[in-house]
Amino acid sequence: MGVSKPLSGCTVSLVDRDLLNQTHLYVLENTEKVKPYIKEHMIHIKTTYPKFRKRTRWLQDKHNNIFIQWLRFKVQSKLNGEENNGVSENLR
């Protein structure tokens, strides 16, 4: 395209897995289409671990640790070979 000088260099940064997951969770929790799934997941956790129903901190930590994987499974099973099955493009 007629550029005769080199493009500026880039810097590669490696992010550890925990920070990446924390950032991913933050984005998901601030996405309007995900909020019903968050409520459903909290109900799921309270049902699965009834002894911890009233331990807010424990519930939040459990949610933070498994929500991304749970959401991925939930969306995939909802799609189940169908094109969109009520799942938004952004969420897919």
Rank of each mutant, 00 (worst) to 15 (best):
T56Q: 13
Q76Y: 08
S8A: 08
R17E: 07
L91T: 02
H44T: 02
R53W: 08
V15K: 07
N90L: 14
I66D: 14
E40Y: 10
R72M: 10
Y26H: 09
L7R: 13
N64W: 01
G81M: 00
L25V: 01
T47W: 06
N64G: 09
V12P: 03
V3G: 04
L20F: 15
I45W: 00
Q76P: 04
E32C: 09
K54G: 15
Q76I: 08
Q76V: 08
G86C: 03
I43P: 01
L28P: 02
W58D: 00
V87G: 12
V27P: 02
S4R: 11
K54I: 06
L59Q: 09
T31V: 03
L19F: 10
F67I: 00
G81F: 01
S13M: 09
R92V: 12
D61S: 10
K51N: 08
V12E: 06
K62E: 04
Y49M: 11
T31I: 02
N21M: 03
T31Q: 00
H24P: 01
L19S: 12
K5W: 15
N65P: 04
I43R: 13
R17Y: 10
S4M: 15
S88K: 12
P50H: 07
L7A: 13
F67P: 01
V3S: 15
I38A: 07
N30T: 00
K74R: 09
P6T: 14
D61F: 02
Q60W: 12
K51G: 05
Q76L: 10
E29Y: 01
G2H: 15
H44G: 01
T56Y: 07
E82Y: 14
S13N: 14
K78T: 07
L25N: 05
I45T: 04
R57N: 14
